[in-house]
């Protein structure tokens, strides 16, 4: 047995995922593969049809429904939000991700009629991102308090700093404090420390053989 085990083996896309991917392309979907993970981006109107097609093809377990806010994503163009269905086929042991892009104020058709288990998951996305699921039987907040305004996982949700007047007369202004945190300008400390966030490296995937001796080479960044 070799000493180095390698990266966790990604399960390659199998025949079922490929078939469903083709069916979803027929619904107007755009497929994409990253690290052996198939994600098909379908138009908002055919989201429910796509989920139904996948379920009928054999993706019987709805693992997850998740939201993504692309507000600060570097070089992102297109709608601000995404809703991603994480589907797993038990018999075929395959996984597929169906992604629906939408803007603020638009809604997605609920899939609680296909999987009752989507109930909490869609409520969570509604709670944390403010994405509306049309036809959901009970679309209420799930985990944040009733009196919390806004949607906590949106990228423009304030991080909770309160304007503070200290005893020595020093005043902490949340806006400049936050600016220092995210690295857009010099904050309270005068150090642009947060610049690490949002730095897009132009790193390409290197072949494994050259990476093994990376320790001996100079760091390229």
């Amino acid at each position: 047995m070799s000493e180095v085990a390698g990266a966790p083996a990604a399960v390659p896309a199998g025949p079922l995922a490929t078939t469903v991917q083709e069916a979803l392309v027929g619904l107007g979907g755009r497929p994409g593969v990253f690290k052996e993970m198939i994600t098909v981006t379908v138009p908002r109107a055919s989201g429910h049809d796509a989920a139904r097609a996948a379920k009928e093809a054999g993706f019987d377990l709805l693992s997850d429904v998740l939201g993504i806010d692309w507000l600060n994503f570097p070089r992102h163009s297109g709608p601000r939000f995404s809703v991603v269905y994480n589907l797993y086929a038990i018999a075929a042991n395959e996984r597929i991700f169906i992604r629906i892009d939408l803007d603020d104020g638009e809604s997605v058709a609920t899939i609680t009629d296909l999987w009752p288990g989507a109930n909490f998951l869609e409520r969570e996305v509604f709670d944390l991102f403010g994405v509306h699921f049309a036809g959901h039987p009970n679309l209420r907040k799930l985990i944040t308090p009733e009196d919390l305004e806004g949607h906590a996982l949106r990228k423009d949700f304030p991080l909770g700093e309160t304007p503070t007047l200290f005893n020595d007369g020093r005043f902490l202004d949340p806006a400049s404090f936050r600016a220092g945190m995210i690295g857009r300008s010099r904050g309270l400390t005068g150090w642009v420390g947060g610049a690490r966030k949002g730095v897009v490296s132009e790193q390409v995937e290197r072949p494994a053989a050259t990476r093994a001796d990376a320790a001996d080479r100079k760091h390229e960044s």
């Binding site: 047995m1 070799s2 000493e3 180095v4 085990a5 390698g6 990266a7 966790p8 690290k35 995937e205 494994a208 990476r211 093994a212």
Partner: peptide, 8 residues
Amino acid sequence: LMDSQVPI
């Protein structure tokens, strides 16, 4: 994500 070579 990183294609890390984790020792056995």
